[in-house]
Design a protein around this nucleic acid. Sequence first.
DNA 1: GCCGGTCGTCGAAGCGCTTCGACACTTTCA
DNA 2: TGAAAGTGTCGAAGCGCTTCGACGACCGGC
Lengths: 334, 334
Amino acid sequence: MSGRTVTIAEVARHAGVAVSTVSYVLSGKRTISADTRRRVLDSISALGYHPNAGARALASKRSNVIALVLPLRAGMHVPVLMRFASAVVTAARRFDHDVLLLTADEGTEGIRRVAASALVDALVLMDVELHDRRVPLLRELAEPSVLIGFPAERAGLTCVDLDFAAAGARCVAHLSERGHTEIALLGAPAVVYERGTGFARRTREGFTDAVAAHGLDGVALPCEETFDEIHETVARLLADRPGLSGMVVHNEAAVNHVLGSLRQLGRRVPGDVAVVAICPDDVAERASPPLTSVLIPAEEVGREAVRLVMEKLRGAPVPEATLLTPQLTVRAST
Amino acid sequence: MSGRTVTIAEVARHAGVAVSTVSYVLSGKRTISADTRRRVLDSISALGYHPNAGARALASKRSNVIALVLPLRAGMHVPVLMRFASAVVTAARRFDHDVLLLTADEGTEGIRRVAASALVDALVLMDVELHDRRVPLLRELAEPSVLIGFPAERAGLTCVDLDFAAAGARCVAHLSERGHTEIALLGAPAVVYERGTGFARRTREGFTDAVAAHGLDGVALPCEETFDEIHETVARLLADRPGLSGMVVHNEAAVNHVLGSLRQLGRRVPGDVAVVAICPDDVAERASPPLTSVLIPAEEVGREAVRLVMEKLRGAPVPEATLLTPQLTVRAST
DNA sequence: GCCGGTCGTCGAAGCGCTTCGACACTTTCA
DNA sequence: TGAAAGTGTCGAAGCGCTTCGACGACCGGC
């Protein structure tokens, strides 16, 4: 059974039908009588048949593989990226597709290669920058693609993401409702803003606009990831702004350090300072105290990205932009 | 150029040679005159030719894709896993292979599927447990595989990993040299030990054996990942053992919390308590204070795993076990 | 000046699958 | 009751590549 590899011809012979009949049973593209179908399926499991992926790809011009392009840049929070990635793999399997992993080492050449060689049918790209070098390439590719994140110029592309501007605004609104009037945003590391990563900037804009709209006093700062740097940022922030009583933290790696720093400075959460985070639920739940947070819905975004790319593969029209509405969960920190 | 897809036949016609000649230029499996080779390569770049992966796989019985099986289990430190994964992708590309990402959702069935369908030529498996359900399957598969980690029964397999027992011992030796006589190991979360994950247990054994060998007083504890749990563990440890002056932390996620906890308890590092970590260098460097550490050489392990799997693909014999020697870097925490 | 060897190239036979057109049978309905 | 319209199945033609055997052309050695 696991000796030599079984071909469709052997299945056909075993079941006493033509090769094409086996193929149609498998693909469902033509009607097959219940009786024949049974016989074929029995033969398939009796012989342990698995269609050869290469042959299938060659004949059908579909590899049933999608590429996941995951640059793994500095300052990105890897566990969050992996949740996206994992969601993409799971969702792809549900559409009977596998996932080829592409990292940044090869640059855009890798994308061109896997697309041109028909190794993949479609692409899902993560960690999109505002001026992403991959975007022009996607435009000239025949293969459909979906971006997780938004570049500056998105005409003709398909993008999915959490609505980070709304997320920033939602946090401000929550703090405002709680009566805080002087608040701060601790965001991504400076390098991430400089690189022009969309989600960091959009959160900051959402924060800033909402601060103005609510008539609050607010400041937005980048936030590095080592304890010492964060501690210094937090200490200076509190020293400079004695009236500050609310913080929004949009940086998974920094969340715990910010809390540690406040602890060390003798500030109680939420007594002295209320904290809202934008991060996955498990990070918020495991913090001490558990944090009021806006969830980064990685699973949902990944699933949606795959769904959209499959629609495009079918030739169905899809919206250019899909923004998921942020959901705020109140926990112990506000 | 990026309109229709270019085939080898078009390249052959453009260069005025036979299809097989183009193939031999590409594969180097027969000698081709310098002149012909030039013409063919020129045509290839002029037409923007990329060989069709499916056709190549079908004809050559090699997909030039390897599977990376990455379960993403609870308690595993994702950034570390991703460094392995990223190293595997980079190394695979160097051998002209791509990487298919398999997660745990499908269980062993996914492995069987990609192997039987010839979607992949070989497999690299990560996060191996002592009694891993995937191991029996690997034994019956025709495709070569390499494990990153060691199962209990490893006969007939190929495994690579850091020598964690030596790493645990190395940390003990270092603390002993520094004059510490009462020390503790803070290890992985309890669930990881229960699952029988090899590296966690082997570190603990290395620690325990070395403690005995050096005539020290030592205790090994599991260590969860939230600040509150860690703080409690650390506080109780210090309360129970007033003479304790050295700690080994083998838990990337907990490292910063342990330091935060010591800070909060008013213990100076390294003045009151010396800390050695087993973690990637960047985690150690970014901690406060920077930690003396044994590096988890993710890049090296990933590269070695790929090298071994390529050797096996060539039919070359490879050692069953490859253990990388731990390297201790002294920083500010001891 | 003829013979065995390389060297460089070609043509053709698959690799295992999908898909198209064809073809027997049934049904259906004027 | 016969033509039209399904149903269910088959055979064969590729899909684009690798690889095998064949075959001139050229080499040196006798």
